[in-house]
Write a protein that binds this DNA or RNA. Structure first.
Ligand SMILES: [Zn+2]
Ligand SMILES: [Zn+2]
Ligand SMILES: [Zn+2]
Ligand SMILES: [Zn+2]
Lengths: 152, 152
DNA sequence: TCCCGTAAGGATATAACATAACAGCTGCTG
DNA sequence: CAGCAGCTGTTATGTTATATCCTTACGGGA
C-alpha cells in the first residue's frame, strides 16, 4: 500500500532551496544552512525551541531565540518554510515558489504534516471571501486528524 | 452601504448562551458570566491576557491566568467561543450549536473577526482529506486580509 | 585609504501565551 | 454526616516570541 506521507526527500528539498537562493541572489549563510538541515531532517514539524536546542547542540554553545526566529523569518518570507499556526511549528514547504494556498493535514498521532495543493479550494475560498467583501492576502487551512498510516 | 461586519448583538449572544446552558444543565456561574460579558462587549477578539486584565479591573483584584483559561476551556468545550489560532485570541461564536466548520475572516486593520458558514467548503475539505486517506476531526480555516469596512 | 551604509548575527532581557499542581469551598447525595 | 463532584483560588513554572542594543563582515564611493 502506498504511504500516506509524501516521503519528502530532505536532500532534494535543500538543493531546491539552494537553487532558488542562487537564482534570486539570496544569501544562504552557514547559520541558515544549518537550520535548513535541521528542518529537513525532521520527520515532523519542529517548534522554534526544538530548533534552538538542536542548533545549540550542533554548535556546542547556547543559541539565543532571536537567532533562530530571524532565520525562520527569512525562510518564511521567501516561502521555503511554512508555519503551522495551530501548533506553533515550522515545516519545509514542499512546493517551493507557490503561495501556500494549500491545505495542511496534521496528524494527531504521528505529528506529521502534509501540505496539499488544491486550486478548487483556493477558488472557493476566494469566492466566499469576495461575497463578504473581504480581500484576503493570506490563508491558513489546517485539518487535524488521523493520517492514512496512523489510521491503519 | 451595508456594513461588512455581522453586527453581532452582544446581549442577544449572551442570552443565547444562557438559554443553551439552561437547556443542557450547564452551570453558568458568576465568573463565567463576567467573562461572557467581557467577550461579548469587545468588538474584536480578545487574547487571554486581555481578558485577565479586564476581569482583574472588574473584580478590583488580580485574577490569575488559570481562572480565565479554565473559563475559556468551558466555553470552547461547549462551542460558545472559538479560538483564532493565528492570533491566540478568542471570540464569541455566532452560530451556537454548530461544529465550527466555517471560515474566519480576520481583518488586519480593525482586528475584527467574522465567522462564515460554508457547507460547500466543508464538503470540499472532507473530499480533499479523504483523497489523501486523512480523517479530520477538527478544522481551521482562517483568511487574513482587509474587511469591507476597512477597504473603503 | 577612510568612511559609511547595509545585512547578518550575538547577547541580554522581557513580553506574551499557557499549564501543572495543589488547596479550599460549596452543594449534592447516599 | 461522609463522601464526592464541580468550581475557584493560588503559586509556580513551562512555552513561544519579540525588543533592544551591540558587534562583525562586506561593498561602494569620497
Ligand atoms: Zn507550501
Ligand atoms: Zn499519522
Ligand atoms: Zn462558531
Ligand atoms: Zn477591518
Amino acid at each position: 500500500m502506498k504511504s500516506g506521507h509524501a516521503e519528502r526527500d530532505p536532500v532534494r528539498w535543500q538543493e531546491q532551496v539552494e537553487s532558488v537562493c542562487a537564482g534570486q541572489g539570496l544569501h544562504l549563510t552557514p547559520l541558515r544552512r544549518r537550520v535548513l538541515t535541521i528542518l529537513s531532517e525532521s520527520s515532523a514539524p519542529l517548534g522554534a525551541y526544538a530548533i534552538i536546542d538542536q542548533l545549540s547542540r550542533l554548535e556546542g554553545k547556547p543559541i539565543a531565540p532571536p537567532t533562530v526566529y530571524r532565520t525562520l523569518d527569512f525562510f518564511l518570507d521567501h516561502g521555503f518554510v511554512y508555519k503551522i499556526e495551530s501548533r506553533n511549528a515550522y515545516a519545509p514547504c514542499e512546493h517551493l515558489g507557490h503561495a501556500h494556498h494549500g491545505v495542511l493535514l496534521l496528524c494527531d498521532k504521528c505529528g506529521r504534516s502534509d501540505e496539499i495543493e488544491d486550486m478548487g479550494l483556493d477558488r472557493l475560498l476566494q469566492a466566499t471571501a469576495a461575497r463578504a467583501g473581504f480581500a484576503p492576502h493570506r490563508q491558513m487551512v489546517e485539518l487535524v486528524g488521523l493520517c492514512r498510516d496512523c489510521a491503519a
